[in-house]
């Protein structure tokens, strides 16, 4: 398995002089292609900071990050932007949608930034909406959607550029458990069927257990990095399938 992210001795310090706060105190983390990794920790543990560094949204105070073997510090700003645009997908707890714009226009955003032609990006966005089962809502205003639908649009937006890695920051944090499960299913489906590397930042143990690997972080350090027990994983996948069936049924009912 290829290493997609290779982080060595990451440190991040905020503030200056008397008000110094060390968010990360030397973190080593390798993430392999096709993995699903949960980064778990309490708030203030440094998990979000770690994700931001891995996603190249921020630069570490010291340490190195390699993406596909390329060291991030050696990339120009332009290359960095291009890398994030083409290889990463982001799903956030608060959705970050443009509520007054249409669903399609929201999904299209990464492609627009990439400078892809109007016709092609519409096609790709419709394909992505098909995956999250919202193609019928393409022309609706984003504000008219339910919370679960909004997060599905965000997933469509995250996968529209066919990324290698999806960063999901508390993807179910704003949703009730039933809709949350559907989102989880979608994300793990992408991970399984399309081989997308999934990095989930969460404090939700249930969500974390669905991942192959759980990285526990506390006080700026990794305190545990282990795979979930096999039986738990099996149970989790069964539970997911059940849930999927239930949702499908519910949808069919709705359609009628």
């Amino acid at each position: 398995m290829e290493k997609v992210i290779e982080a060595k001795n990451l440190k991040k310090v905020y503030g200056k002089k008397s008000a110094v706060f060390t968010a990360l105190k030397g973190v080593d983390l390798d993430i392999y292609e096709g993995e699903s990794v949960a980064i778990v920790g309490k708030s203030g543990s440094g998990k979000s900071t770690l994700m931001h560094l891995l996603a190249l949204l921020d630069t570490p105070t010291s340490g190195t990050i390699k993406i596909d073997g390329e060291e991030s510090t050696k990339l120009s700003k332009k290359e960095l932007n291009k890398l994030r645009n083409s290889r990463f997908g982001f799903v956030f707890q608060q959705f970050f949608m443009n509520p007054k714009d249409t669903v399609l226009n929201n999904v299209v955003l990464p492609l627009k930034i990439a400078g892809i032609s109007r016709k092609k990006r519409k096609q790709l966005a419709m394909d992505a909406l098909k995956i999250v089962d919202l193609e019928s809502k393409a022309k609706n205003k984003a504000t008219d959607l339910s919370g679960g639908q909004k997060q599905r649009v965000c997933i469509a937006r995250a996968i529209v550029n066919n990324p290698k890695i999806i960063f999901a920051d508390e993807p179910t944090g704003n949703l009730d458990s039933a809709t949350g499960d559907k989102i989880t299913d979608l994300l793990f489906d992408l991970n399984k069927k399309q081989g997308v590397t999934l990095i989930v930042v969460t404090h939700d143990e249930d969500l974390a257990k669905l991942c192959q690997r759980i990285v526990r972080i506390s006080d700026g350090k990794i305190i545990a990095d282990n795979s979930v027990r096999k039986d738990t994983a099996k149970k989790a996948s069964e539970r997911r399938e059940k849930e999927a069936a239930r949702v499908k049924k519910a949808n069919e009912k709705e359609a009628k």
Binding site: A55, L57, N81, L83, R84, N85, F90, F96, L109, I113
Partner: peptide, 16 residues
């Protein structure tokens, strides 16, 4: 502000 943050995360340059 958040839209700007999102666009930057998605690789939009400062210049753009």
């Amino acid at each position: 502000t958040r839209e700007i943050g999102l666009m930057k995360a998605m690789g939009m340059s400062n210049g753009k």
